[in-house]
Amino acid sequence: MADQQTEYVTLVSSDGFEFKVLRSAACLAGAIKRMLDPTSNFAEAVSNRCVFENINGVVLEKVCEYLYYNEKHKESKDVPDMDIPPELCLELLMAADYLDV
């Protein structure tokens, strides 16, 4: 409870995979930012742990990859495209919309 603003936050997928992600990167996603907002009093903000019941581990891994990709290219102008496997594209589509990213 005391250490509310940790450097890393944990994202948990529906099938139990846990991803430890930099807070600054995770907050690029609007939904995660709202969950972790210290003023919101959400359980996630207190525990620094977000559980996504509708996103499975494979998709969440790709989402984390995107978050770091976006963080990495924050300043750069010529951003290369991230690879997205076609078999994941529709699930990622839904996840991206859900997470506001």
């Binding site: 690029l28 997205i84 076609p86 594209c89 529709l90 589509l93 990213v101």
Partner: peptide, 30 residues
């Protein structure tokens, strides 16, 4: 706070899905 040049994940996913699937296929799979 996000990169103003990087494409959004939603757009990337849309690009890949419209490349590989037809409109009807996407609608039936969603």
């Amino acid at each position: 706070t996000a990169s103003i040049y990087a494409p959004s994940l939603l757009d990337l996913a849309f690009r890949v899905s419209t490349q590989h699937l037809s409109h009807a296929q996407i609608l039936s799979l969603l």
